[in-house]
Design a protein around this nucleic acid. Sequence first.
DNA 1: TTGGTTACGTGATGTAGATCACATTCTTTT
DNA 2: AAAAGAATGTGATCTACATCACGTAACCAA
Lengths: 189, 189
Amino acid sequence: MESKEILQQHIAKTASLTEEEFDYFFSHFKALSFKKGQTIISEGDKVDCEYFVISGCLKAFFINDEIKMYILQFAMPTWWTSDYSALYNQTPATINVDCISDVELLCLSNSDREKLCSEFHQIEHFFRWRTNKGYIASQKRLLSFMNNNVKTRYEELLALYPQLYNLVPKHLIAAYLGVSRETLSRLNS
Amino acid sequence: MESKEILQQHIAKTASLTEEEFDYFFSHFKALSFKKGQTIISEGDKVDCEYFVISGCLKAFFINDEIKMYILQFAMPTWWTSDYSALYNQTPATINVDCISDVELLCLSNSDREKLCSEFHQIEHFFRWRTNKGYIASQKRLLSFMNNNVKTRYEELLALYPQLYNLVPKHLIAAYLGVSRETLSRLNS
DNA sequence: TTGGTTACGTGATGTAGATCACATTCTTTT
DNA sequence: AAAAGAATGTGATCTACATCACGTAACCAA
């Protein structure tokens, strides 16, 4: 399936656009390809865009003391990613985004998103719905963080995204769970 | 200042409504008063509304094993609160909301919010903006949770909301930070 | 005024997970 | 195919925070 169709099906779930409206919407996206290991956003960068994942897997992460890495999000096909704080507040990036595998993305600038949202009520509706879903997921993760031990959080994560187990190295899963790779490894025993 | 004005100023920051439009918007809200200690949402409840705080302070929290409490949010004037997961997915509440002090609220039902969002593009715009802010704050808190120790998180919280120090008992602040009240108490020494 | 509940402090001890150190296996590059 | 680097496993030790236990002070309600 083409990127265009993937995006179309994604937004059709919450917004009804005519064919011409969608074409117009789509014309604001730029297709990009990256190789495994390439960086999309680095700490300190000016952030202009958000990214819709067509294929592959990205991570959005924070580096502390230039040593420890914490992963905020694994971004998989049909997910959106960026440094939203930097994007909305027009401040330098505080998180990094890079490619865990080869990826294909569609890129939408902040100003185009705002323009499209104000031009089409349905597009604004879509973005409200999307952010809402993200907010609810984020609250849930926060609660799980406070409430559950590592083992439970690990099981929860694998239940939700079984594909991660094979797709992503264990030390990155540890960085998502907020534990050391050693502790994660010891869960199996 | 009256509730109506407080809400009007709040939404005027992101949405421009005429006087009549705002009156129509406001007519969907119901004013409610509660005493300190009263419960707004209990685990297992059907959740129909979200709440805009006019005065006082609420907590949205989760109880684990009927013992430990984790606070997701302190809701202060001009903040919104509810169990959003339950509200959007029409599932029973998994979190509780109650009153830390006497409070005045404006209550908006889920169906009225959706109706208003579809009737007025500007209202949809406002709710997108609000949720977006919440999402960014939630991500930030998650990051702080993974990255910082209790002392740093406590200082961050007090820097952001100095009024909490006097307004809210320490054991509730501990429940927000995700530590025991004893550990929080020992930070001073 | 009194008795009960809630808030807060602080010592002693327990424990989940971090950190350090090193070995092994798997993957990528040349 | 060889070499180098990344990913993973596992023991030993350390530490931040939890838990338990107890005491004191503040705040209500009868």
